[in-house]
Write a protein that binds this DNA or RNA. Structure first.
Lengths: 191, 191
DNA sequence: AGGCTCATGTAACCGGTTACATGATTAT
DNA sequence: ATAATCATGTAACCGGTTACATGAGCCT
C-alpha cells in the first residue's frame, strides 16, 4: 500500500490527474520508488473506493479530458497517521538479486565476476550523472511551496548520492581484490 | 525467479532439504534476501516441475523424514547462464518506503522527522551489531569448501557494512540539519 | 500522413507474504 | 507433560509488472 501513500502524499500538495502523478513519480520518487503508470491508475481506483480521494472529470478543449483527484479529509488523516508511524524495522532491509549473483561468484571465473562488478560500477557512475538534474528539479517544483518542504526532498537526494558512491567504492575494492587473485593464479601457472 | 536461482545456487554446493535451505538463507543471504519457508517450499515444487532439481525422500529413524533435493544438469546450466548474464541495470535500483516517508517529511514537524531518523539510525546500529557473527558464519560454512568461494561471501558482507555505515552517517547529517532548523524556529518565537 | 505528447485504462501473470495447519522426535 | 527443534506444506491475498489496447489533439 506504499504506492497509495505516495499518491496521497502528492495529492496532499495539490489535486492532480493520474498522468500528473506518473510525471511526479518519475521526476522525484523514482530514485527509490519505481511506479508504472498502469499501477498508479489501478491504485487511484482503490483509493477512491476507500474514500481517501475523490475525482472529477475536467473537460478540456485543447487536450484529451482528464480526471483530477483531490485528497479527502479521511485520506489526509490516513496519510498523516502513516507518516507518524515512523520508520519500521523494514527500513534497514535491502533486497538485491545482484548481490545474490556476487554471493555465488565462486561459480564463475574471477575475471567474469570482475566484469560483472565493473558493469555495475559503470551503471552506478551513469546513475550518478543522471542525478545531476535533481537540484534543479527540486528548485523548480519547490519554488512556489514553503521552503521547509524542499529540505526533505534534498535529504532523499543526498541519500541517493551517498548510496551510489558507497556502491562505487565497494565495487572498486572487490575488483582490486579479484585482480590480485588473478595475478597470483597467473604466477602459479607460470611456475 | 531470483529465489529459485538462490536455491539452485545452494543446491549446486550440495544436495539439501527444504529445511536446510531455509537455514542456509537465514544464515547468509538474509542480508539482502529475506526468504519465507513457505515460499521456499513453493519454489522447490516449481523447480522440480521444471526439471531443474530432483528430490528423494530420506527416511530417518531419529527425526522426521525429509526430502533431499539435488540440482540436475539442466538446473546447473540454467543457474550458470543466469550468473553469466551479469548485473542488469536493476542492480542500481533501490526501493524504500522509508525514504518515501522522509520525502514527505514536510507534513510532520521537524522534531517528528528527526525522531523517525533517530529510530532509523538506532535500527542501523543494531543491525551492525548483529552482523558481527558474519565472519564466523563464513568460516564455519566455508572451511570444507574451496577457499575461493568465501571471498565472494565476504564481498556481500562488506557491502552490508558499507551500506549500513552510509545510512548511519546520512541520518546523522539529516538530524543535525533538522536540529539547527528547530533552533532557528525557537529563536524566532522568542523575538 | 506520421509522429509526438497527453491521457486512461484492462487482463494475465508473477513474486512474495501472511496466516494457518500438521505432525514427528528429542530434550527437559 | 511440554517446549523446542525438525520438517513440510496449503490457501488466500497483495503488491507490482508486462503486455496490450485505445484514443484525443498537436505539430510538421
Amino acid at each position: 500500500m506504499s504506492l497509495g501513500f505516495g499518491i496521497l502524499g502528492f495529492l496532499n500538495y495539490a489535486p492532480m490527474s493520474g498522468y500528473d502523478l506518473v510525471k511526479a513519480f518519475e521526476s522525484s520518487l523514482q530514485f527509490f520508488w519505481h511506479a508504472q503508470s498502469s499501477h498508479i491508475y489501478l491504485e487511484l481506483k482503490k483509493l477512491e473506493k476507500k474514500g481517501y480521494i475523490s475525482g472529477e472529470t475536467l473537460i478540456q478543449s485543447d487536450r484529451p479530458n482528464k480526471k483530477i483527484f483531490s485528497i479527502t479529509e479521511t485520506g489526509k488523516r490516513e496519510f498523516l497517521s502513516w507518516l507518524a508511524e515512523g520508520a519500521g524495522e523494514e527500513a534497514t532491509h535491502f533486497k538485491s538479486a545482484f548481490l545474490m549473483k556476487v554471493f555465488f561468484g565462486g561459480n564463475m571465473t574471477p575475471a567474469q565476476s570482475a566484469d560483472m562488478l565493473r558493469r555495475f560500477q559503470a551503471d552506478c557512475e551513469a546513475y550518478l550523472g543522471s542525478m545531476g538534474s535533481a537540484p534543479e528539479s527540486i528548485e523548480k517544483y519547490g519554488h512556489n511551496k514553503e521552503r521547509c518542504q524542499t529540505i526533505y526532498w534534498q535529504f532523499t537526494v543526498d541519500f541517493g548520492y551517498a548510496f551510489i558512491k558507497t556502491c562505487i567504492e565497494w565495487a572498486g575494492r572487490c575488483i582490486r581484490k579479484l585482480e590480485s587473485i588473478e595475478g597470483e593464479n597467473r604466477k602459479e601457472d607460470e611456475v
